[in-house]
Write a protein that binds this DNA or RNA. Structure first.
Lengths: 149, 149
DNA sequence: CTAAAACCTGACGTTGGCGTCAAGGGCAAG
DNA sequence: CTTGCCCTTGACGCCAACGTCAGGTTTTAG
């Protein structure tokens, strides 16, 4: 299998695959003409790599984990690394949950304008912020709708 | 309150606070000599900003959310933005859970060196990931069956 | 045979949330 | 007055996972 098919099937760019190889995360055979050739298992390997990247693991960490995946065993240091990353992930999930709840609180506050749930109405602390400056952001007052997230 | 105390109490650097101000996320009065002065509420505000950053919200998005926090109401676009970010966060949590489970599988694999549980030595896939929908999604895989309530 | 894909190797660009000097000003204590 | 700590603006550095362009080769379809 050549690089393009792996990329399509794994849902990444060919650039990413070459980058993974550069980082030592992925190996490839070469055809006589120099083109990369991959086994079927590469697709899954790439998906796993992607999963780890998505979870915020840096490539160097993944590089240390993958041999353990390949061989099926690892040193105590690797186990500690795995445990540490697991803790990091758990902490990140808690942070995300907290931020999500914060967003929910914002929505609730906007839906129920009661002073009890609305610190902005209790204290005039950040209140002098509202009018002139907060609506327009960087340059030129003429751009109304350039927003598309 | 001056910048140093806000920084200490909010657990960020003074550089970060100046950066927030530069991005329009935080305002300050100035003393006659030009030093920044903050109200008590700034500490809480900074913590909220940090929480959003930790959750992966870019500063421009936070910039659009904060006025809603301040005033207690927002336009429909803001509500859609909040909803979209909430979905992003939920998806990110699912990705994290999937990666965590992948790590757990690595550990299990290393603890039980039986070929049945060792995909590196066998054929079958080792993730609840099915390659069926691997057609074309360039930005971030975030598909996971409901494993979180 | 030819033209379009697909592939190759560099190599520079991007993005964001700061860190980190650099060079100076303000202000209380001794 | 001077020491020392905190503050100011400005500007460059950084890191990581690629995107993207350039310029050339290989494979494939017609």
């Amino acid at each position: 299998m050549r690089i393009g098919e792996v990329a399509r099937r794994a849902g990444v760019s060919t650039r990413a695959l070459r980058y993974y190889e550069e980082q030592g995360l992925l190996t490839s055979e070469r055809s006589p003409s120099g083109q990369r050739t991959y086994p079927e298992s590469a697709v899954e390997r790439v998906r796993m790599i992607q999963q780890f990247f998505t979870a915020g693991l840096p490539s160097r960490t993944i590089l240390r984990i993958l041999p353990c995946v390949d061989t099926g065993h690892g040193s105590p240091e690797i186990f500690e690394l795995l445990a540490a990353e697991r803790r990091r992930i758990t902490a990140a999930m808690e942070d995300l949950a907290a931020a999500r709840d914060a967003l929910d609180r914002v929505v609730d506050m906007a839906n129920h304008p009661t002073p009890e749930h609305c610190p902005a109405l209790r204290e005039p602390a950040w209140a002098p912020y509202d009018g002139a400056e907060a609506t327009e952001v960087p340059t030129g007052p003429s751009r109304a709708t350039a927003l598309h997230a």
